[in-house]
């Protein structure tokens, strides 16, 4: 999939004097907090969100990273 913004930024990197950037793609990161009974149900909800709202699978790939903040705070 062509990423025109990534290509333009890669060209600018060379003009800054940073050579050798062979690939540069721009996407987005979404940072969200969700309350759920357990990790499995949180993951299920987040997968639904990612697939149906946050990303358009026709043109975007997505990955998901789950952190249990309640466990960290306890």
């Amino acid at each position: 999939m062509l990423d025109p913004a990534g290509e333009a930024t890669r060209a600018a990197a060379a003009r800054l004097g940073v050579d050798g950037v062979t690939k540069l793609r721009i996407g987005k990161a979404v940072d969200l907090e969700i309350e759920a009974a357990d990790a499995a149900s949180a993951r299920q909800q987040l997968e639904r969100l990612s697939d149906r709202l946050l990303a358009n699978p026709v043109i975007e790939n997505w990955t998901l990273e789950l952190q249990d903040t309640a466990a960290q705070e306890a």
Partner: peptide, 11 residues
């Protein structure tokens, strides 16, 4: 309708 509309080439 199928497919998607994305950023124009050359921006």
């Amino acid at each position: 309708l199928p497919g998607a509309l994305t950023r124009n080439h050359k921006l």
